[in-house]
């Protein structure tokens, strides 16, 4: 009797194992994606890009929305590890505090790829690489456009993002360093508009009261603030895009619409459609390829003249 039972058990295990291997051999990649939340149109576009890329590639995607909380992201990653996923995509809400959970992932042999933001960890081998835009590059692009548009002479005001956000710090640094090459262009003032339309408008109102027609170009760290500034300029009885020119970062559809209407002059793209690149990179990592620590999503500048022809193909 006893022998028979052991035999049966062994048989069952072997069959199960065989099936398990068969499932594995079918090569359905299981990937966990811990997203920050859905706080902006930009992020929603990123989420959709990852979900649709997974569908196209036949990847089994486990999606988790952290609602802006790191603790939710950490527990999501633990759940992914427990489910034995093949890889993890992480859009980290903050820069620090990731060591413990990423160590667990590393010990489980699961590669982690960071999306759209970086993190600070002592041991960089805890993640494979980060795929983000280069905010400094974006700032430089804005400065180059500004310098060309003004012919090397004029006055600029800057609407900054949330204090401390890497996008705000680096978009400012890239812009100011590049603009320093044209000494006749002056930055009259910089003030934070917190990445929102409402504050962007309010800050621009104050700038207009102070400098009036002396402002030639407004540089906004994101589209929303720029669009707020457009309204402030209109209400001051001036023509945005003509009397005062605007360049913003992100290149959302709303900004393209404003460009078509002639109210914004140029946008620097910050592309959220990282899905395809993320999975391509993950596959390379699983195949054991050596990857750069930082894979840059290359962004470009669009101007008013191109807007009408490009707007149809914009996905966000």
């Amino acid at each position: 009797m006893k022998h028979k039972r052991v035999l049966l058990l062994t048989l069952v295990s072997v069959v199960l194992l065989a099936f398990g291997c068969a499932a594995f051999a079918a090569d359905t990649l299981v990937v966990g994606f811990s997203q920050i939340g859905a706080e902006s149109g930009w992020r929603t576009a990123e989420t959709e890009s990852v979900i649709s890329a997974a569908k196209d590639l036949g990847i089994d995607l486990k999606f988790s929305d952290a609602q802006q909380k790191q603790e939710n992201q950490i527990s999501a990653i633990r759940a992914f590890i427990a489910q034995g996923v093949d890889g993890i995509l992480l859009a980290p809400v903050v820069e620090t505090g990731w060591e413990p959970v990423l160590t667990e992932a590393k010990e489980a042999g699961i590669p982690v790829i960071l999306l759209d933001r970086g993190i600070t960890v002592a041991d960089e081998s805890l993640y494979v690489c980060k795929i983000t835009s280069d905010f400094i590059f974006e700032g430089e692009q804005a400065a180059k456009w500004t310098a060309a548009e003004l012919g090397g002479k004029g006055n600029v005001v800057q609407l900054q993002g949330t204090p401390g956000a890497s996008a705000a710090i680096e978009r400012q640094k890239g812009f100011e360093d590049e603009l320093a090459k044209t000494p006749d262009i002056k930055i009259l003032e910089s003030q934070t508009g917190d990445f929102t339309m409402e504050l962007g408008k309010q800050v621009m109102e104050a700038f207009l009261k102070k400098y009036g027609n002396d402002i030639d170009v407004v540089y906004a760290h994101n589209d929303d603030m720029g669009l707020g500034a457009v309204q402030a300029i209109k209400e001051a009885g001036l023509k945005p895009g003509a009397d005062i020119k605007l360049i913003t970062v992100d290149a959302t559809k709303a900004a393209f619409e404003a460009m078509v209407a002639g109210e914004v002059n140029a946008v620097v793209e910050c592309n959220p459609l990282l899905g395809p690149l993320a999975f391509e990179t993950l596959k390379k990592a699983l195949a054991g390829e050596k990857l750069d620590k930082w894979i840059v999503q290359v962004d470009q500048v669009f101007t008013k003249d191109q807007a009408a022809s490009v707007i149809g193909s914009r996905k966000y």
């Binding site: 706080e39 902006s40 917190d194 929102t196 339309m197 409402e198 408008k201 669009l227 707020g228 309204q231």
Partner: peptide, 11 residues
Amino acid sequence: TEIRGADANNV
């Protein structure tokens, strides 16, 4: 109406 848009996250 101030910003001619509803910004549910921030308004």
